[in-house]
Amino acid sequence: MKTTTSLAVPLAVGLALTAAAVAPASAATAPRTYQGSAAPAEVVLGNKDNYRTVAVRSGDMIRVELKGSRSAGSVWAWDFPASSDFAVLRPAGVGQSGNGDAWGDFRALDKGTAEINSTEQCYPEAGWLCPAVIIPWKVTIVVQ
């Protein structure tokens, strides 16, 4: 029994080393090359990105996901995000949900600077009151 065990361990180690030597290189270690420029990127922005400046490349997509909130008797809801300059940052779709969330997709076109703006405000349910407050949200996008 001892002889079998002592031969099995070196045999298993040898097989493992042989398999590693003949295995093809993994995709993680293979170098990546791109023809022309890199693929367009997607930038996702949310509530916490208020008043940020973000640099992107022409062709990149910017997705805005603003989260509203609900409290007893009211919903704090976002308006549709909007671009300040369609020649620089073109809207590709916007939407809202009943829970106060709003979203928007924008394509970076030409070099320049544009803002994406939205506002959040309170909408009361019947018999409730809301403060007369409008909360602005703005991100500056620099297309390079």
Rank of each mutant, 00 (worst) to 15 (best):
V54F: 08
V54Q: 03
V54K: 02
V56K: 10
R57G: 10
S58V: 05
S58P: 09
G59S: 13
G59P: 10
D60P: 00
D60I: 04
I62A: 04
R63S: 13
V64F: 00
E65S: 08
L66N: 00
G68K: 00
S69T: 04
R70Y: 06
S71G: 11
S71K: 04
A72K: 12
A72M: 08
G73P: 00
G73A: 10
S74E: 15
V75M: 06
W76G: 11
S83H: 10
D85Y: 05
A87N: 11
L89V: 09
R90L: 06
P91G: 11
A92I: 06
A92S: 10
A92H: 07
G93M: 02
G93C: 05
V94Y: 07
G95H: 07
G98Y: 11
G98M: 14
A102K: 01
A102F: 02
A102Q: 05
A102S: 15
D105Q: 08
F106S: 01
R107D: 07
R107M: 13
R107H: 13
L109M: 06
L109K: 13
D110N: 14
K111Q: 13
K111G: 15
G112I: 12
G112C: 08
T113E: 10
A114I: 06
A114T: 12
E115R: 14
N117M: 12
N117A: 12
N117W: 09
S118D: 12
E120T: 00
E120L: 04
Q121S: 10
Q121F: 14
C122V: 00
